[in-house]
Amino acid sequence: MTLSAQASGPDTGAAQGMTIVARTQGQMIRRRFFRHRAALAGMILFGFVVVLSFSSIGFMGVPGWWDKSYLTTGALVNQGKPTLSVVPEFLGGSGIHLGEHPFGQDDIGVDYFAKTMRGTQQSIIVAFLVAIVATTVGTLVGAVSGYYRGKTEAVLMRFTDVMITIPVLVIAAVVGRRFGASGVVVLGVFIGLVIWPSMARLLRGEFLSLREKEFVEAARALGTSARRIIFRHILPNTVGVIIVSATLTVANAVLLESALSFLGLGVQAPDTSLGQLINEYRTAMVTRPWLFWWPGIFIIAIALSINFIGDGLRDAFDPRQTRVRA
């Protein structure tokens, strides 16, 4: 049977260049993410903000390259106006340079660039802590209630219902009132501890649908322990949802922290954050608008870049909207 022998080799297809290019899931996700131009731009922008804020004034005792501190006052130069200039001379500007106080000075002569950088650091730290804590707790609660159902689910979900009735800003404000003065780490952790319910709800939905899938049935039939099924079998399948939602939580947390600090219920002076800066100089809008503008710009830059990253991740993990219908 020479005829059939010729064609039955499994590799004949590949030799003809006709097999579908096999990519691992990770590769595909990465590819889709990097094709998302806005996400890429977001990543570059966010990277820039992080590097700028942490390297300029230094962090935790490590000195940075910027020579002024966010604590020491200096002589007011030109009423504290920003010296940053970005319009080149041939366009009628004063050339591209940073100057002595690129972002200007506040009313008592503190370098506002250093202060804004400090605020940026603090806001980023709070936001990440909030996201990490909320994601961890939310995932655990969601996973357990989604997997076990029955009583566990009922209790956990009722509790989640209760928490969801309370507007996030309200509960966070109550927590911020108590822990705002204890520093950003404590504040971040505690805000995270009260805003996890929406994450739990999301994860519970995922678990509810995944627990019915064949591979879970199979694992159960083999006598795999519940804990192992949750962490080894189901959780890896929800990584996309978790990552995307955690990313968006970071963006929301930046805004939440700044809103709280603005209300005076978040980070407290002398410590600083972007929202706290805006609150402090809120009345300066008319006379010294830069005190108001810079922190605002940084809040927007952080939130916008992370939102774009989150959108890119969502597309990468769940390309449903761009899916080709067969």
Binding site: A259, G275, I300, L304, N307
Partner: peptide, 9 residues
């Protein structure tokens, strides 16, 4: 996206 990222205050 810009609106999502704007601080309300």
């Amino acid at each position: 996206f810009v609106c999502f990222s704007l601080p309300l205050f």
